[in-house]
Computed example of a mutant assay.
Amino acid sequence: MEVKCLGFSVSVDGGCVSLSELFTFFENEGCVVDANESNQRRFYFDTNSHDDYFKGLVVTVKDQKKFCRLTNENGGFQILVDNLQGDDKLLEFNFLIIHKVTGLGLYQHYYQSCSMNVFGKYLKRYHHQLKKALGDAEISTQATLEGSPLTEGRKQRIRKQFSGQLKFAPLVRQENLEAILKEYRKIKSFEFEYAYLDHEVRAATPLSGFVSRKIEKLSFLGDTSFKNSIAKAISAFTAGGAPKRGKVIVEDYDGESIPIKIFDMPDCFGVEDFDKLAAKLHGLDVDYFYSHEIFDDLIAVFESEEHEDVFGMELQQ
């Protein structure tokens, strides 16, 4: 079984609860346990062990004691059922890193582990809960200072101070762009950097003799009936090789704006055999998960020359 290294981006629009504050909340809790789904998930984050990266570990605890295995007995194959003892549990794991400046990250995933998009939904949920808790605390503080309950208008104005949204999206290959864009309700804008400045581009650029890079942004009409045509046009434009990288702002069916970042990149940023990776984890103390060599491997992938066009240039923008 393969363990793939996938790319994603995460950001917060508004300064009410930053990524650093969110991951510090996780870190201070030691382990955040979420049992709202069929399987329990445990989240571990570290914000201090590396100057440039947040480190994370997602552990999915399976709600089962029995598991099956195939054995060769007397020249024939048999299915045997084993049973875990005591408090032992089956689990799946996902290691991840997030660059503290760019919000770009790498996420290890394999079949039956927590998917990257599901992980993003958890981040959004806890970011929302933390915003609400801070807003409620501020309302309580102001009511105490004033000696009486606040009006609903005052409460709403305080909550607006904590209204920023967490944005989470996978990094997208140009070849997959059209299908992904069509999944959203609306395409709001398309921003891209030219891969090179040819004669036609320079001719349409003010002060072209002094320009080394050019970034353009297109904003689209709000009519959702144009969505498929816009998705097809953006996909065709990126396939033509004109943009070096880009970003499409889409709106989902809940009305939330999401940035879809486009790169000329591989389907994944590395593949490792599951058995070899699992062997490295034997005896890992999750309280010190951040010291494991897996994070050195992820950081090496992130900072490699091979992927500099994806991760490195973001630091310069």
Rank of each mutant, 00 (worst) to 15 (best):
Y196D: 14
C31Q: 10
D273W: 02
Y196G: 13
D13H: 10
Y107R: 03
E183Y: 01
R41C: 07
V172R: 04
L84Q: 08
S148R: 15
T141L: 14
K244R: 10
M1V: 04
A204Q: 14
F95K: 02
V248I: 05
E178Y: 03
I299L: 03
A133R: 10
H128S: 15
T60I: 04
D34M: 07
F43E: 12
D136A: 11
I258D: 13
T71N: 08
S304Q: 02
V118N: 14
E306I: 05
A239T: 02
G86T: 00
V3W: 06
S20A: 11
N36Y: 06
P206F: 06
G222R: 06
F226P: 00
R202D: 04
Y107V: 06
P266N: 06
F220C: 14
M313N: 05
R125V: 13
C114F: 06
E175A: 12
S20K: 11
Q112Y: 08
G283S: 09
F93V: 11
F311L: 03
K247C: 11
P259N: 09
V118W: 08
F45Y: 09
G86N: 10
E305I: 03
Y184S: 05
T144R: 15
K62G: 09
A137V: 06
E27L: 07
A278D: 09
E303P: 02
F210T: 11
T224I: 10
A203K: 14
R202G: 10
K62L: 15
K155M: 08
L134P: 13
Q40M: 12
Q40I: 07
V17G: 13
F220M: 13
Q40N: 14
F26W: 10
V301R: 01
G120H: 07
S38G: 09
Y53P: 04
Q142T: 08
H199M: 10
L221Y: 06
F263E: 12
K131G: 08
N39Q: 12
C268D: 12
F302I: 01
I230T: 05
D297M: 03
A204V: 00
K131L: 15
L70W: 05
Y110W: 00
S163V: 01
R69K: 13
E303V: 03
V33K: 15
K247S: 11
G255T: 13
F119Q: 02
Y184M: 03
Y111L: 07
V118K: 15
F162I: 02
C5W: 04
E305W: 00
I249E: 08
S38E: 15
S113K: 01
F274L: 13
R185T: 00
E191Q: 14
L57N: 07
C268N: 13
F237M: 04
T24Q: 14
I97H: 03
D88A: 15
S229Y: 00
F54I: 01
E306Q: 05
A239H: 02
G76V: 10
Q108I: 09
G14A: 11
F226H: 08
Q317D: 12
I139T: 12
G120D: 13
G240D: 05
